[in-house]
Amino acid sequence: MTLSFRKHSLGVHTARRIKGIARYIALITLSALWLVPIIFVILTSFKSASELSLRQFAWLPSKWSFDNYIKAFSYPGYDWPLYFRNSIFVTVVTVIGSLFLNSLAGFAFARLNFRGRDILFMIFLAGMMVPPQSIIIPQYLVLKGIPFVGGNNWLGQGGKGLLDSLWGLIIPQLCGSFGVFLCKQFYLGFPKSLDDAARIDGCREFQIYWKIYLPQSTTILATLTILKSLAVWSDFFFPMIMTHSNSTRTVQLALQLFKSSSTKWNEVMAVVLVTILPLVIIFLCAQKYFIQSVVSSGMKN
C-alpha cells in the first residue's frame, strides 16, 4: 500500500517535471520564432551594404558600427527630428485631450441625470463598430471644409481647412466611443455616497468630477493612455490620407516613405529600430499596465 503510493507519487513527480521541461522547450522555440523579425532588424541595421549582398549568408555583422544610423538619419530630404516632434506632439496632445474629454463624458453618463442620456450614450456606442476606412472620405471632406482655417471662408470653402495640419490629426481623435464607454463603466462602480458627501460639502458637479472622481481614476486613465498612445503613435492610415507635406509628416509616414527612397535595407532597419524603440522600452518597463489595459478593455465588453 505505502509502496504503491510512493511509486505513484514518484510517477506524478517525474511526469510533472517532463511536462515542465516540455513547456520550456515549446516556449523557447516559439519565442525564438516570435523574435526572428526583430532580431533581423537589429542585426541588419549594423551590417554593411556589401554584407547584405554577400552570396554567403552570415548571421552577425562583421563589424558593429553605427554608420547606417548616421546615414539614414542624415538622408537628404528627410528631417527626422521634425517627424519625431510632430508625432510626439500629436500623440501627447491627443492623449491628454481625450483623457480629459472621455472621462468627463463618462462621468456625466454614469452619474448625472439629464434628459435623453441613455439615447445619447447609445449613439456614442454605435461609433465603436464603424470601420475607419468606411468613413474616411467624409472625414476628409469635413476636415477640408472647416471654416476660418487653412484659407477657408466662413462657409468652409476656398482653402484646405484642417487638411495637412497637425490639429487636423488631433481633433478627430479627441473623441472616443471606447474611452467614454470604459470610463462610464468604471465610474458606475464608484459608491454613490461619495457624491452625496461631496454635495453636502457644497461641491458642484464639475468639482465632484475634478476633485473626487478624477483623482480616483488612475487605473482607467493608465489603461486609456496606453491604448490611445499606441493607436495614435502607430497609426499611418489617417495621417496618410489627411497630410501630404513634409512639415506635417509623422514618424510612421516618414518610415513608410523612407522605404521607397532608400533601397538599402540596412538603413531602413536602422530607422525601423529607432522608431520602435521608445514604445518597446516603455512597454518593457510598464508591462503590467499594458497587460492590464488589454484585459480590462476585453472584459468590459
Binding site: 474629454l101 472621455n102 453618463f109 461609433g127 467624409p138 478627430p172 473623441c175 466611443s177 468630477y209
Partner: peptide, 16 residues
C-alpha cells in the same frame, strides 16, 4: 460635460 466629445463625434463619425 458631454458636449465637446459629442460634437467631435457627431462631426467626424456619426454624420460621415
Amino acid at each position: 460635460f458631454i458636449a465637446p466629445n459629442f460634437f467631435i463625434y457627431i462631426t467626424f463619425v456619426f454624420i460621415p
